[in-house]
Nucleic acid binder design. Structure first.
Length: 647
RNA sequence: GGCGGCGUAGCUCAGUUGGUUAGAGCGAACGGUUCAUACCCGUUAGGUCACCUGUUCAAAUCAGGUCGCCGCUACCA
């Protein structure tokens, strides 16, 4: 068997339902897959779900469900939603499957055997008051950077020696310019690696859910470590035959999970085991939803399908075509370097101008002329030189764009042939040729039809149903072989053409009253974020007496203002009973000053005061950490007098 | 704070290794055409290429600095 062209998306976390970010990534992968198939490659397109996190178990319990039943349910939602967007994956892996568990354990075992995992103890300087680990080089005069006492500690866990892979990784990145795309992201990765990679904790106490560490059931493999291995697990590894599927030619993902995971941890893991690295990692930017606030509970992947349904209704186009229109929009604007903002106005406008006016109308008028002037079948004659060149250029530009996975540019290249066609028709004016019985007429009509046939082929990976519809109107069978695109052979003389029928009925755009307020909710991360290392390490039990040392009280925020020179810190004046304190908290990412003022909070009042950015902080607010690393402040269930003790 | 990126016509953006009148798409205005889904084609936009100072015969394109925005990273009691 020959090596397949392997394309992956991240596996999506089943803690929530599919959203816009996952749709964008998966669409990009699908376009890549369809393109490669047309080029004659055997493609292996992999996606799946990530189901082993502790959060999953907790979410299941909260929903009153058995974890397995819970993940079955959500995983199937993902599995079912993609075909609805004409996304054709070849394999769907779930991390709860035996094939994945076997691969993870074997992967772990090999790393252990090769000495890349050290077990049982983490030794290092530890700042007890901040519960943070420090490297020798972090210390200042034998104290933590904050001036606290540090002690040498040991923690029980498994650690991956990622630090030893910084150099080989840098060498690989230097030697393979296309390893990380786009360039901006690659620069980020390089600077991240240059400042030194730390060993990572790759296990945690077994909560009864997850993949046990081989030979040690008290621990499960840490979710991220586990999740990344799906890519190789799906190839059948460690069983023979995996070489036909690995390495992946391209691994698509959102930019949030590129630097820390796919471009460092993942390749380091592969190097450790001795497996080849993927050829290219692409981290795209976000398509932010503007214009309308997104309901978090709904989940945003519904948006593309709802958008399609709504478009279909408003424009009376076929639902299939509407879904293609959504695919087109996403492909044409697929953000790479910078995020872009989606608005309904822009979507409608693009539908009308690019799809209805340019492509749809070009097909429509060309067919109408074919019926009127040359009897409704594909004429012979030779395709004119300027058309030949425009076709060749569009095709070549598409190919060039796809080398670096610039789907937006590829889409533009496909459109260039349509734009050419409209100009060409205008210049050659077939109606005038017909009037004068000009012998050039058949050749001109044929040139026009070949442009359309080319457009059909170029557009096919992006809009498969639309391509079929174009082929049908051209009376031809779908053009699925890339090498045939633009050739005389793709357009058989004498083929009967259908009567023209608009594929994209125009939308009647009413003037919008006034632009709605732009809301740009933070995109949800594509998959599990890695928890801070200190969370991992502090599994140590404490006694009730230990806990009693911590004095917690209810307080109320009186004033709040950002700390200058910091992007996360907020300076707060908090009233706690009789006293009033200044507290500095790193919560600006999640809360504005207005959010905070007059809010009740829980404060640790006997924490040693410290200076943050030169501002004195006399305590600490209690907060949970959300998936993005933002803060979720704890608040009494109902109003309690300021100063009330908490235990 | 460190590193990186960005700041070009009303909007979205292209602008290779510095070199004639700075480009495309959309919107707008005007004109043309009639095959077509009132579509398409053309012309027009006189933009301090964020700002300042340099290097050079010549800079949007290089160097230094300033301002603004963003990303990564650090800090986040």
């Amino acid at each position: 068997m020959s090596k397949k062209y392997t394309i992956t998306t991240p596996i999506y976390y089943v803690n929530s339902v599919p959203h816009i970010g996952t749709a964008l990534t998966t669409l990009a992968a699908d376009v890549t897959a369809r393109y490669q198939k047309m080029r004659g490659r055997e493609v292996f397109f992999l996606t799946g779900t990530d189901e082993n996190g502790l959060k999953v178990k907790e979410a299941a319990e909260k929903a009153g469900k058995d974890p397995m039943a819970f993940v079955d349910e959500i995983s199937s939602k993902f599995k079912e939603i993609w075909p609805g967007m004409f996304i054709e994956f070849d394999d769907f892996i779930r991390t709860t499957e035996p094939r994945h568990r076997i691969a993870v354990q074997e992967f772990f075992r090999i790393l252990q055997e090769k000495g890349h995992i050290y077990t049982g103890t983490y030794e290092g300087w530890y700042d007890v008051s901040s519960e943070t680990f420090y490297k020798e080089s972090d210390l200042v005069d034998g104290k933590s950077p904050d001036g606290n006492e540090v002690r040498w500690v040991k923690e029980d866990n498994y650690f991956f020696r990622m630090s030893s892979f910084a150099e080989p990784l840098m060498a690989h990145i230097d030697a393979n310019p296309n390893f990380i795309l786009p360039e901006t992201r690659k620069n980020e990765v390089v600077s991240f690696i240059k400042q030194g990679l730390r060993d990572v904790c790759i296990s945690r106490a077994n909560p009864g859910w997850g993949i046990p560490v081989p030979g040690d059931d008290s621990q499960v493999v840490y979710v991220w470590f586990d999740a990344l291995i799906n890519y190789i697990a799906a190839t059948g590894w460690p069983k023979p035959g995996w070489e036909d599927y690995w390495p992946a030619e391209v691994q698509w993902m959102g930019k949030d999970i590129l630097t820390r995971f796919h471009a460092t941890l993942w390749p380091a893991m592969l190097l450790g085991v001795g497996l080849p690295l993927p050829e290219t990692l692409v981290g795209h930017a976000w398509l932010l939803m503007g214009g309308e606030k997104i309901s978090k509970s709904k989940g945003n992947v519904v948006a593309p399908l709802e958008l399609a349904a709504e478009l279909s209704e408003r424009s009376t186009c076929a639902l299939d075509v509407a879904i293609d229109a959504v695919r087109f929009y996403m492909a044409a604007t697929l953000p790479v370097d910078n995020d872009s903002v989606f608005t309904y106005e822009e979507f409608d406008r693009k539908y009308n101008t690019d799809l209805a006016n340019d492509l749809g109308n070009a097909l429509n008028r060309s067919l109408a002329m074919s019926h009127k002037f040359v009897g409704g079948s594909v004429p012979g004659g030779s395709v004119e030189e300027e058309a030949v060149q425009a076709i060749a250029k569009a095709k070549a530009d598409f190919e060039t764009a796809m080398v670096t996975f610039r789907i937006d540019h590829a889409t533009d290249a496909a459109w260039s042939v349509v734009r050419f066609l409209n100009k060409y028709i205008d210049t050659r004016a077939p109606w005038a040729l017909a009037k004068n019985n000009d012998p050039a007429l058949p050749g001109v009509i044929r040139s026009m039809l070949l442009c359309l046939r080319t457009a059909e082929g170029l557009v096919r990976s992006i809009m498969p149903k639309t391509a079929d519809a174009i082929a049908a109107q051209l009376g031809s069978s779908p053009l699925t072989d890339w090498s045939q695109i633009g050739t005389e052979g793709s357009l058989i003389e004498g083929t009967a053409l259908s009567q023209p029928k608009p594929i994209f009925p125009r939308l009647e755009l009413t003037k919008k009253e006034e632009p709605k307020k732009m809301e740009q909710p933070k995109p949800q991360p594509t998959a599990t974020p890695i928890p801070a290392q200190k969370e991992e390490a502090v599994a140590t039990e404490i006694t009730i007496d230990d806990f009693a040392k911590v004095k917690l009280k209810v307080g109320r925020v009186l004033e709040a203002e950002p700390v200058e020179g910091s992007d996360k810190l907020m300076k707060l004046q908090v009233v706690i009973g009789e006293e009033r304190r200044q507290i500095v908290a790193g919560i600006r990412k999640s809360y504005s000053a207005e959010d905070l003022i007059s809010r009740q909070v829980i404060v640790c009042v006997n924490l040693k005061p410290a200076k943050l950015r030169g501002v004195e902080s006399q305590g600490m607010l209690l907060a949970a950490t959300d998936a993005d690393g933002g803060a979720i402040l704890l608040q009494p269930d109902k109003e309690a007098p300021e100063g009330t003790g908490v235990k």
